[in-house]
């Protein structure tokens, strides 16, 4: 069953700004082959289902229509796993500082 949002839930929507054929000619070919897409977050104006069109009110009080993609969207970026290529640098530099020139 598809996820549903209620009115005033914090949600994310998606829409296509420019189809590939509408894009400016002044860009690399690989970029020109794909649409210009947009994601915006805001509060749902009424209940809706993921994958269907909803209207949101954004933090700037604009009303924007798009396809509902996420409800209570989270951030998933992290500090990442330890970069082993960096892990010895501190020890190496401290050892160098202890040496005479």
């Amino acid at each position: 069953m598809s996820e549903k949002c209620k009115k005033d839930d914090w949600v994310e929507i998606h829409y296509v700004v420019l189809e590939a054929r509408e894009r400016t000619g002044d860009i690399p070919e690989d970029t020109r082959k794909v649409p210009l897409e947009c994601w915006i977050k805001g509060w749902a104006e009424k209940e809706g289902t993921v994958g269907e069109e909803v209207t949101i009110r954004t933090p700037a009080n604009r009303y924007v229509k798009g396809t509902l993609t996420r409800i209570n969207p989270e951030y998933t970026h992290t500090f990442g796993p330890c970069a082993s290529e960096l892990s010895a640098i501190g020890q190496e530099l401290r050892a160098t500082l202890k040496e005479g020139k």
């Binding site: 894009r23 970029t31 210009l36 915006i40 933090p59």
Partner: peptide, 20 residues
């Protein structure tokens, strides 16, 4: 930006950012 209360318009790659 969202933490400070801004509306964030996230786009895919391209100079049409200016157009938006």
């Amino acid at each position: 930006c969202e933490a400070y209360g801004a509306e964030v318009v996230q786009l895919t790659v391209g100079p049409e950012l200016f157009y938006v």
